[in-house]
């Protein structure tokens, strides 16, 4: 649901379940659309026998893309001004991910209301897999 500027306060927290039991097929879908065909994300044999990982793991950009929905579902993708993250832990098939945005500031700039947020995504163990920030324009 779209939020209007008048509905938002500093400290508001928006939280969504991004995915439950992440499927390998979703990694394949993301490879196909993004163009990142790194076998680390689709090729279990390569991961285990050549790369030294227990299996395929998610593209950081898939986690960032899923997390972005916490912001775009509320403000609209066309209103995102800034979005940046650090990838802090790998995401694996079977993981459950929860995304959270906390409103740090509400400010006026060039006649627009801008919302600054801190973004965090955690897995089912409570480990942070992504941390970052976003700024979105709130419609009046």
């Amino acid at each position: 649901m779209r939020l209007k500027a008048s509905q938002i306060s500093v400290g508001d927290t928006f939280e969504d379940i991004l995915v439950e039991d992440l499927k390998r097929t979703q990694l394949v879908m993301y490879s196909g659309t993004s163009g990142d065909y790194n076998p680390l994300h689709t090729d279990d044999i390569y991961c285990r026998e050549a790369a030294g990982y227990p299996g395929v793991f998610a593209h950081g950009m898939l986690t960032m893309g899923m997390t972005g929905r916490v912001v775009t579902d509320r403000f609209g993708a066309e209103n995102v001004k800034k979005y940046g993250v650090r990838f802090t832990n790998q995401v694996w098939p079977g993981d459950d991910l929860k995304g959270k945005a906390v409103v740090d500031a509400i400010r006026q700039e060039n006649g627009e209301t801008l919302i600054d947020m801190t973004i965090t995504t955690t897995n089912q163990k409570g480990d942070v897999v992504l941390s970052g920030y976003a700024t979105a324009r709130a419609e009046k």
């Binding site: 790194n38 950081g60 995102v80 001004k81 979005y83 940046g84 993250v85 990838f87």
Partner: peptide
């Protein structure tokens, strides 16, 4: 090929 550590977008 390396891993992705950070990503930032500004529109």
């Amino acid at each position: 090929g390396g891993l992705h550590a950070e990503q930032h977008f500004e529109f």
